[in-house]
Design a protein around this nucleic acid. Sequence first.
DNA 1: ATTAATAACAGTAACTATTACTATTATTAT
DNA 2: ATAATAATAGTAATAGTTACTGTTATTAAT
Lengths: 133, 133
Amino acid sequence: MKKMNYSRQREAILESLHNRYDHPTAEVLYNDIRKEFPNISLGTVYRNLALLSDNGMILKLNCGDGVEHFDGNVEPHIHFICKDCGDVLDIKMDNFDFINTLASSAFDGEILGNFTYFYGFCKKCVDKRKNEC
Amino acid sequence: MKKMNYSRQREAILESLHNRYDHPTAEVLYNDIRKEFPNISLGTVYRNLALLSDNGMILKLNCGDGVEHFDGNVEPHIHFICKDCGDVLDIKMDNFDFINTLASSAFDGEILGNFTYFYGFCKKCVDKRKNEC
DNA sequence: ATTAATAACAGTAACTATTACTATTATTAT
DNA sequence: ATAATAATAGTAATAGTTACTGTTATTAAT
């Protein structure tokens, strides 16, 4: 692990990530952190997100929208993507890695794991739709 | 569905996709098709891939490497990504959408489905590693 | 078969997300 | 306090993708 000096910007990025629930993109974090550090540069945000995820302190997520999302919660958990608002939320469900065994027996190679995202409508958007009717 | 006139370029793209097993990117398809149509433009490849996937004739895959991959097989099936060579292969396994039910009971919203990718080493790369030892 | 309407094209420019570069500033160990 | 260097802001560069433009190909109607 490369030596890391303390930096206030990096601390703010990590803190912002820990205070959120929606697994933001670099751009979203950048706009959030600019309230506290108006001069922070987008490059700093990207560089620190890369450092933090390389060191296992945050997760980098590919949610299928072509943009990187970040997660301050490194405990194993599952992600849900809202088709309506695009938010990425956590699902605290039991581990289902037994599907790896199902896949192994149908595949001629070595299965190490899976990435799985659930999608649908989050509570917020389900309620919004109800109110529109 | 928007009106589509016949085009030789589009036919070649679809045919190339049907003849492959590795779920290529637009760039890879472009280089493949240039053997037959040396003047085809990358924009034409992208435009046709978008048209074909909008019309349900091919699949657009987000495999987590930040680049779009395409699949000429629209039958429901599962994908595997090789950590070594990057190839995206099919797994013909039983449907495991019962995990949606597991997720639903742990989530306060509406679960419609999941995307799942398995990863590991494909047969080709497992064999390559054996030979290196 | 000709023609008119327009879909598709090649080539290029523009755009978006991300990474790399550079001169300056901040942190840390001595 | 100082020296070494990590981190920064600001900017330039890159990669993947989409949009634009004038020309060509396809189609449907005469």
